[in-house]
């Protein structure tokens, strides 16, 4: 089977982005939309009186909130939904993280293989969340359905003032 992990691909292993800060500080309504989406209305996410009695001493955002807190910037004039207007676009973005090079592999599908989280603390309303991403590994396995390339991305999340929130290892699969 064709080897997709060429020298050009191997060259980006270890590439690390700078710290990117989320567009807005954590907002109460954003936390509400998140816990409603994950069907988890625990009072610790919204009720200060009950949250005071918990180990957190106040309301927090759900554990994986930081992973999904990076939204389109107010000054980002390129609309990601316009990608379909690009005649070269094949429907799959290989730019897996802001600040990291695209993965130069022409396999047609990109799937999210899963996450491993290490949790340190939870975001709170008003926190500014920042993230730094690193390509930890890229390797190929040949299965019955053809080649699969695994891209392991480490994402470190912290507050702008340096409180660690979460470390994630995300495996993306191209096939």
């Amino acid at each position: 089977m064709k080897n997709h992990v060429t020298d050009d691909v191997r060259a980006i292993i270890g590439a690390q982005s700078s710290w990117n800060e989320a567009t807005n500080a954590v907002e109460a309504s954003e936390v509400r939309r998140f816990f409603q989406a994950i069907i988890d209305p625990k009072p610790v996410y919204w009720d200060e009186d009950q949250a005071k009695e918990t180990r957190y001493g106040g309301t927090i955002a759900p554990p994986a909130f930081a992973v999904h807190a990076f939204r389109r910037g107010t000054d980002e004039t390129i609309d990601p939904l316009d990608a379909g207007l690009d005649p070269e676009f094949d429907g799959v973005s290989r730019a897996l993280r802001p600040g990291l090079p695209s993965v130069p592999i022409a396999l047609p599908r990109v799937l999210n293989g899963g996450y491993e989280y290490e949790l340190f603390s939870y975001p709170r309303v008003g926190d500014r969340i920042k993230c730094r991403s690193t390509y930890r590994d890229i390797y190929q396995r040949d299965g019955k359905t053809g080649p699969m390339v695994f891209i392991v991305i480490e994402d470190e999340y912290a507050t702008a003032d340096g409180r660690p929130l979460l470390k994630s290892l995300n495996t993306m699969i191209m096939r």
């Binding site: 554990p63 799937l111 293989g113 899963g114 996450y115 491993e116 989280y117 290490e118 949790l119």
Partner: peptide
Amino acid sequence: LVRFFDQN
């Protein structure tokens, strides 16, 4: 919660 892992 210290660690959590999931595979799709």
